[in-house]
Amino acid sequence: MADIDWHYFLELLVSGVTKGCIYALIALGYTMVYGIIELINFAHGEVYMLGAFTGLIVAGVLGVMGFPETGILLIGGVVAVIYCSAYGFTVEKIAYKPLRNATRLSPLISAIGMSIFLQNYVRIAQTQDFLRYPNLIPDFAFLEPISDILRPSGFVIIVTSSLVMAVLTLFIKYTRLGKAMRATAQNRKMAMLLGIDSDRIISATFIIGSALAAVGGVLIASHTQQINFNIGFLAGIKAFTAAVLGGIGSIPGAMLGGIVLGCCESFAAGYLSSDYEDMFAFAILILILIFRPSGLLGKAKVQKV
């Protein structure tokens, strides 16, 4: 092809960014938890799935009670965020806190077990079928001219996640809790010596990470309009990949990693073959890690002896 089809390029870019925003929202949870206790929280994808389910159930109840659609979306989102925070908090207390001083791999296995448990918990308590997620996002009139590039749900995803990430960045940077979190991530022992309650910080990390995942869950479910108990698994792995791509432990890294991964997949599907979409995503990950072994924005740790 001699000249580039810019319209097509833009289409792919926008859908890549949309997907990337979701990955980024989930990846933030991975990266924050990793930054503080060096644990790959495999159950994080399930928290995202729980968020989508809670949102759906709340929407169902409110729908019967006759609420307006936008109201349902907002209340559903808020309830999902609250519940997911509670789930994140509880999962940490049950599966990871007793393992604080164990070898590094034990909590990892506990997390895999938790992930299997939560999936089946939802499958048995709810259903193994796919459920339709109501289309709660209004059609914005100003999006009409570019409707083939950006759908309303895509627009809401990009706006909401940018907003959430901006708030998170400010929170981490300026609040007392955010500073304490950064201190704990840098050096837990030192932070404890300075009077920071590390248990509280870890709980807070899980709560914030899960809340972000819940936002991602509700947004993506409104976008694809269907959920089942299994949606967390693939999204979780992709988000984890994004977190590593950006440099695990780094919050801007997770955001960048998510968007880079989303765009990679989108361009691979658009220009090459969607058959090998995942392969390109992982191949790029491997290439980046070969040249930047700590990810895009991760700081290379100098091992001190």
Binding site: A95, L99, A102, S106, S110, I112, G113, M114, I116, F117
Partner: peptide, 19 residues
């Protein structure tokens, strides 16, 4: 219930025998 119990027992085994 089998995968539910399987997941739960993985967590339990790790929590009570982390090594």
């Amino acid at each position: 219930y089998r995968m539910l119990i399987f997941g739960a027992s993985m967590v339990l085994m790790m929590v009570f025998r982390p090594q």
